[in-house]
Design a protein around this nucleic acid. Structure first.
Lengths: 178, 178
DNA sequence: ACCTTCATTCAAAACGTTCTGAACACAGGG
DNA sequence: CCCTGTGTTCAGAACGTTTTGAATGAAGGT
């Protein structure tokens, strides 16, 4: 294969590995995704194993993780007994899948914990000494701030997840916050 | 101290530790930040060491990291020789500091790598065999998609970073993407 | 100048995470 | 049925990251 193609492949795969780490996935997942993304044909586990020089076990486990996150899918190649995979090429789809599965739950539980805290504080209010009262007010204030922050995050998340039509990034001209 | 106050403190500190991991920081940084956030008075390194039951060295290093990220600041307490810290209580400020320092650079370099790739591909175009030509087109297409994605990320980032007045989360009513 | 108090640094240890490779399981074909 | 090709699992190894604790450094007080 031509040097330029090889170089581009390598830097893209490396970059997606980096991106994966950044999002809290393993680097190998990103590299597998990148390799599939730059392959016109679906690839078998052996292909991936060879291209990335990693063990069969690692390919197997990481590919299943990619499937769970909707970042790759199994594809049947006629006449082949082996499994073949291809990347989900729609980035927007990938983002939505990750956000809705992970960050959404994260924000949700954070909000629950904060509500619990506020409730717990209020139900203990009468039992507090004068000194504790001061701390009580301080806590309520700070936790209110945290709640506001997470509510904002939730809103932003739901907005992004709710916009189906955003498949074409080029069409995005502006985000307005007001 | 009252049980409720203690319980709330603990779950909040734990939650912020979790959040810190989520953002790619160490858990201790989040816990330190949370402890400071829930303290009406600035705290010394020894205070933090005792409250979180971690070594002095760890407190020292992690606090400097927090300072670098604009999440805490040193505070002078009169009559005290020791250093005291307080948390930056403005979440929005914290977010902006992190985004502008880290994710921004990340997106920037990703875009540069992708531009380089496209350039490299085009300058090699004439030297390619017929088979490589097909791959060339495929690569260009996929890398264009990645570019669109990162350009969107950049736009979103700059929009958020550019909106100074967003200090009050409550005022945020809607994000419009169109 | 010395002593004390506090902060920082860094090498080694503890810890967690990810990868490997061999063992296992499964399916189809002969 | 057994054999072969394939995918999965998991214990141990390898690796990276974070913490510790002791040594070092800095600064104030006497």
């Amino acid at each position: 294969m031509h040097e330029a193609l090889r170089a581009v492949n390598e830097s893209t795969v490396a970059g997606l590995g980096r991106l994966a780490r950044f999002f809290g996935f393993s680097e190998v997942m990103g590299r597998l995704y990148g390799t599939l993304l730059l392959s016109p044909e679906p690839l078998s586990l052996d292909d991936l194993m060879e291209q990335l020089q990693i063990s069969k076990g690692s390919v197997s486990m990481n590919m299943r993780a990619l499937e769970r996150w909707g970042m790759a899918r199994e594809v049947w190649v006629r006449g082949e007994r082996r499994k073949f995979y291809e990347a989900e090429p729609d980035m927007w789809q990938v983002i939505r899948s990750v956000l809705s599965g992970r960050e959404r739950r994260e924000v949700q539980t954070a909000l629950e914990v904060l509500s619990d805290s506020i409730r717990k504080l209020h139900s203990a209010e009468t039992e507090l000494t004068a000194e504790e009262q001061a701390l009580f007010h301080f806590y309520v204030e700070r936790i209110d701030d945290l709640q506001a922050f997470f509510r904002f995050a939730q809103l932003a998340l739901e907005t992004v997840l709710g916009s189906e039509e955003m498949v074409d990034f080029e069409a995005v001209t502006k985000i307005e916050i007001g």
